[in-house]
Write a protein that binds this DNA or RNA. Structure first.
Lengths: 149, 149
DNA sequence: CTCAAGTATATGAGAGTTCAACTAAAATGG
DNA sequence: CCATTTTAGTTGAACTCTCATATACTTGAG
């Protein structure tokens, strides 16, 4: 038998879907408008920017960015066309390759970061109390943990 | 000056992004596998199923489903091809049209609902305490309210 | 050393989304 | 009324994502 959602759960679920979709829509619009990239690409650039020497193996980066390898491969191809990322063959493993953040890519990221953070604040942190932020972190950590296996 | 995220906010944000993306990925995979439709289409069908006479004006439905008119128009076109939705001209307003859920569409929705709800439970409600659900609802309602203007 | 199996990544087709036109029908306001 | 503006909805192109498949290299068994 299906355990349907009770009224509280139903309401919570619909608010969740509405809030998250509005949030991502706002993020994507902002990033697309101001930096010409979707949020997924931004995340890839962030990953690389924080990696040692701004380089990461493709599969490592895919894991980091919660992306399938295929998705990442397409994304990096796109980012490469724009000169923001460059690929390098991996010397240790002939199958592998590194994605490397170029200076232009770093600059693009730096240029996008301000507006992005502002949008995240406006949409999320500015409207939540510190306790709510803690609660949200808790909830998301739990869900993340559950789904990461 | 940019007000960057502090460590707590940073952590919360990354957990939020990770959790929501994993969650939507799980939902979409489940619905695609078991019912051959993405979550966005499921939402459209739900909207129609709850409307009087299972029919709604396109723009009303777009608002309900948090979708752009264009997105909805494409989606309904697709759903129409499968025979799950049918369009009807609006008698009062020559520009408008109704989307109507067909019996096949209702059946498809009914068939998809069980697995979908299971997935939502597994991924979210089963791992959260009642207080967390309340907190999440609160947070999402706030964010939703903020972004809906 | 060789062959089968596994791993890292790329690629192409198909599907969904976005954005910018575009059509057609109201509404508004001289 | 007529002209303008607004509203409802559609369409096509460009882009991203997914899924299945292909390619090339590595590993491990015998």
């Amino acid at each position: 038998m299906t355990r349907w959602l009770d009224d509280d759960e139903q309401r919570a679920w619909r608010n969740f879907v509405a809030a998250t979709q509005l949030l991502y829509a706002a993020l994507d619009r902002q990033l697309q408008r101001d930096a010409g990239m979707p949020h997924a690409y931004y995340v890839v650039l962030v990953g690389l920017s924080e990696a040692p020497e701004r380089r990461m193996r493709m599969s490592e980066l895919a894991t980091w960015a919660q992306s399938s390898q295929s998705r990442l491969s397409h994304a990096v191809a796109r980012l490469e066309e724009r000169g923001w990322v460059r690929r390098e063959r991996c010397p240790d493993d002939g199958r592998g390759s590194f994605a490397v953040l170029t200076d232009e890519g770093f600059a693009a990221l730096a240029g996008a970061a301000h507006g992005h953070v502002e949008e995240v604040r406006r949409s999320l942190f500015d409207v939540l109390s510190p306790e709510q932020v803690r609660a949200l972190d808790d909830i998301c950590a739990t869900v993340r943990d559950t789904l990461e296996r």
